[in-house]
Design a protein around this nucleic acid. Structure first.
Lengths: 193, 193
DNA sequence: TTTGCTTAATTGAACGTTCATTCGGTTTGC
DNA sequence: GCAAACCGAATGAACGTTCAATTAAGCAAA
């Protein structure tokens, strides 16, 4: 098995366990067992549990970035991109609830040592950049793209949460209305286009 | 010292520590020291650490409920209530970042054993009820009040996060625009009032 | 007010468990 | 034959919880 695959196995195993039991309920021994390796082996690939978690976060983030890059296309009208991106991220999170739950736990944990994610983080950089375009082109209200981006993302996250944690099934049409609500709110009322 | 005060001291101490160090980094021994009691004493008031956390969550929630009750007034036009409520909760969370961080960590932790918070939880019950009014009176889009309520609350939470975790200072006027975005999105476009 | 008794509150050292991490030895790949 | 990968029992620290002992509070009778 190539190194990448073994690392991946450890990642997937951690993800699954954190989803079910949270950070605390995820001892390295279990991660090892589920990944089919010995406890000591993990330490060949990761310096410590913290590093494992940190790298996993990074690994996962790359996948969200893929969605962003896929949907943020300069050759497509902004509004269309907006809805594509909303549904893209929504679908991605919905289909990968392990990733989703890990994310949510991570950002509110001490692992995420307030490293001002608004600068370093590639995902957020691209996200904000996307909203910057919407402002420049006059489609969105002229507020900080960081604000718009954060609000939009949390809107998506909430929608996923409603179903995953809230146990509420969305009725027909409701799912489509949510990004509409968001768009209507963020839209620049003076937009002539 | 009356019992209520001692419990409160333990609550405050836990809150402070969880804010700084997270759930894991908050051993009972530290809670005790910070509260000025012996470790064993805590177990006179709380059966276990889990019960302490659970009761603390409840204790905190009561305070959010106070804000809700204060701002949800049938004798005031809905739109006015809406903005009052938004600013009320926003201010409350901003001034009590310990509570805010505890909340966020709690809902995404295994302590919160998916007890379908959409039914049992008093805070959400009242919150959804408020949005129900807005729908009935024709001010808001006719979508499930649970959806509107959840989206609105997450909008407030995000705004607090932007400043507390994101380290972004909101410029003049930006703070006022955020609830406007929300209102414009959720508003019923056919509302005649 | 004092005395004696009962119950509740409090203490903090000690216990037992869990868990991240280590390490000496073994296997695998080249 | 050598280095990297791998193993899993052993280690030691951290932590939730217990408990025997001590102190404080409540209260009735003298």
């Amino acid at each position: 098995m190539p190194i990448a695959d073994k690392k991946k196995a450890i990642f997937e195993s951690t993800l699954e366990l954190v989803k079910e039991n949270g950070f605390h309920g995820t001892p390295m021994s279990l991660v090892a067992k589920k990944a089919g390796v010995a406890a000591g082996t993990i330490y060949h690939y990761f310096e410590s549990k913290e590093v494992l978690i940190l790298e996993l976060y990074h690994y996962i983030q790359q996948q969200s970035i893929e969605v962003l890059k896929r949907e943020d296309r300069a050759d497509i009208p902004f509004q269309k991109c907006f809805f594509n991106l909303w549904h893209g991220l929504y679908t991605y999170y919905s289909k990968n609830t392990g990733i989703f739950r890990f994310f949510e736990q991570f950002v509110n944990s001490p692992y995420n040592t307030g490293q001002s994610e608004f600068v370093k983080d590639d995902f957020h950089r691209l996200l904000f950049q996307f909203f910057e375009r919407g402002i420049q082109e006059g489609h969105l209200r002229p507020i900080s793209s960081k604000i718009l981006g954060t609000l939009a993302h949390s809107n998506i996250i909430s929608t996923v949460k409603i179903q995953v944690l809230g146990g509420l099934k969305l009725q027909n049409g409701e799912l489509e209305q949510i990004p509409l609500i968001l768009w209507d709110g963020m839209q620049n009322r003076n937009d002539k286009s």
